[in-house]
Design a protein around this nucleic acid. Structure first.
Lengths: 325, 325
DNA sequence: AGGCTTGTGTCAACCGGTTAACATACCTTT
DNA sequence: AAAGGTATGTTAACCGGTTGACACAAGCCT
């Protein structure tokens, strides 16, 4: 691989001059500039970002930790984050934690060793202390860790509220909410809070199904839903914490001969592409994933540049009514 | 951030000794080794991989270029590649080309500047010349570029054959295949070759629908399928080049009142998780994505280590019959 | 004529870590 | 006693690029 020395020789100038041209610093005549660019092209030279990173103490890399990028939500999140980050001059190292705390810790250490400029954490939270020691810009996604770590979230309470109110507006009289483990202090728990608040205020009987924190297995969702709907065949409204869970619910309903939305109305969450792809198309609470992703990157960038940032970054959600309600 | 110098001072040894301990090279007494590790822990020191990369001329980074990681197939591919690569000591830079040739070229340059050890290319191919100039291990995914660039693929012809034969075995008398643009020299075109060969050999009328190369828009799939099935209402078998297309086909059938599989039998491709999640569950040709991903990483690793590799790496496919046939 | 600006080169140090060569000291074995 | 092995330190160079300080030359303006 050609180096700056090769370019200098080819152009007949000094290494310092080539560096001046590369960085557009100092006095440079047009003739010299052209000569240097010509040499770079002839040698097919591109500056070594590793060497530059070492000197500048900045890698222009963002680490993105997700539970698994195979999950449609995190797949779309990753696509938005990378697309926007790249447009801002950043590269994205993707890490799949599989919701394993020790693996998450390993990734954090790896990202630290690789001098990433910042980390977008969309996975399980470690102890607060681990983040404090990082000395590195961190933005969490739908997770509150401490009042010193910025996080991007959407209005989860409003999302839960919109969902339950629609179920009730559509005539549901017995509803259920499937969510993650409520023992984990996640911002998404507010959806459940809203679910309960509204159901209780309207005297509507409700059930809660908590999936195990470490399970992304669709089979599990289906088993739990099957058990729920078998035990309570009069449940006529389901609110699920993701579109994927909603799809699983549709499948279980079909298996039980329960028509959607005639017999059971279903509302998912996120509004991933799959929600409008399947039939019937899923009514869902849309999180502004593109905006949230862009905001995550912006927060990292601001922190890297030393600009002040808000700790809480909450975006509005939107009810997207389709065919399952 | 603490450096090796800080560790040396804290441990009361030389930088060279710390380096000897870090790399387990040269004579080192147990007492000194303990002392150094203790200092590293006390200072929360981790070696700077950027500095190491510069010296070793190796970054342990693999660049993965996909059309978009938001697409379920590429999401799962990315998850497998990253998971396996990480277990082998590699980090993965994710790049979404959006099937834009100029963006693809930009990413290749970026990855080159960042001294990645290799590139797994799962996106649109550039001109062969661009790859030859790279001087860097490249493995393509489902794409043949030249006899000097290894590629990982599955038995596309067999996949097409299995699909059509199943359609015919299930009594289909008029079938259609939806695939990408056949003008692009893709290995997946062999599925269509098999589709035609079998249909022709059995005197079964068939149609082909080519999606525009640069479209991942589900709406387009639906429009094309709607037009096809409206114009040819007697088509009773559909073979589609991805499970996502298959889901779109199911949706269109539902819209037209065509029951699946009673009126129209559907076979997808890939066997992404979604294929078994939706209802009815999709019959599909399963590509061994986990193995293909692992193989991609192994090929990169072998090329990096200077070991000989096969150019053609073709894995078998498998018919997974579910509810749409 | 002198001062200022433009343009380029030289030199050295640095970013963090690696490593070869050699020096020194101590211990063990022949 | 001598040779070889163990253990640690010193020195210097390197990986590729950046950059400040200064030198030197040429041209322009006051």
């Amino acid at each position: 691989m050609p180096t700056i020395k090769d370019v200098a020789e080819r152009a007949g100038v000094s290494v310092t001059t080539v560096s001046r041209v590369l960085n557009n610093r100092g006095y440079i005549s047009e003739a010299t500039r052209k000569k240097v660019y010509k040499a770079m092209e002839e040698l097919d030279y591109q500056p070594n970002e590793v060497a530059r990173s070492l000197f500048r103490k900045r890698s222009n890399i963002i680490g993105l930790i997700v539970p698994t990028v195979a999950h449609p939500f995190f797949a779309e999140l990753t696509a938005y984050v990378e697309t926007y980050a790249y447009s801002r001059g950043y590269k994205v190292l993707i890490c799949n934690s599989q919701l394993d705390a020790s693996k998450e810790q390993e990734y954090i250490w790896m990202l630290r060793r690789n001098q990433v400029d910042g980390i977008i954490m969309a996975s399980h939270t470690l102890e607060v202390e681990e983040y404090r020691k990082l000395n590195l810009p961190v933005v969490t996604f739908e997770r509150f860790i401490s009042s010193r770590i910025p996080y991007v979230t959407s209005d989860n309470y409003q999302g839960g509220k919109l969902a339950v109110e629609l179920l009730l507006a559509r005539g549901c009289t017995k509803i259920a909410h499937m969510c993650g483990s409520l023992h984990l202090d996640m911002l998404a728990n507010q959806r459940h809070r809203a679910f309960m608040d509204v159901a209780e205020s309207r005297n509507v009987p409700f059930f809660t199904v908590e999936t195990d924190i470490n399970v992304f297995e669709i089979d599990k969702y289906e088993q739990m839903l099957l058990a729920l709907l078998t035990e309570h065949p009069d449940i006529d409204g389901l609110f699920l914490n993701s579109d994927i869970m909603a799809i699983a619910a549709m499948k279980v309903c079909r298996k039980l001969g329960r028509r959607v939305p005639e017999d059971v109305k279903i509302i998912g969450y996120d509004d991933v592409s799959m929600a409008s792809l399947v039939s019937p198309q899923i009514t869902t609470i849309r999180q502004p994933l593109a905006e949230m992703s862009k905001l995550s990157v912006k927060l990292i960038e601001n922190m890297v540049e030393g600009r002040p940032v808000e700790v809480e970054n909450c975006l509005p959600v939107e009810l997207v009514e389709r065919e399952t309600t």
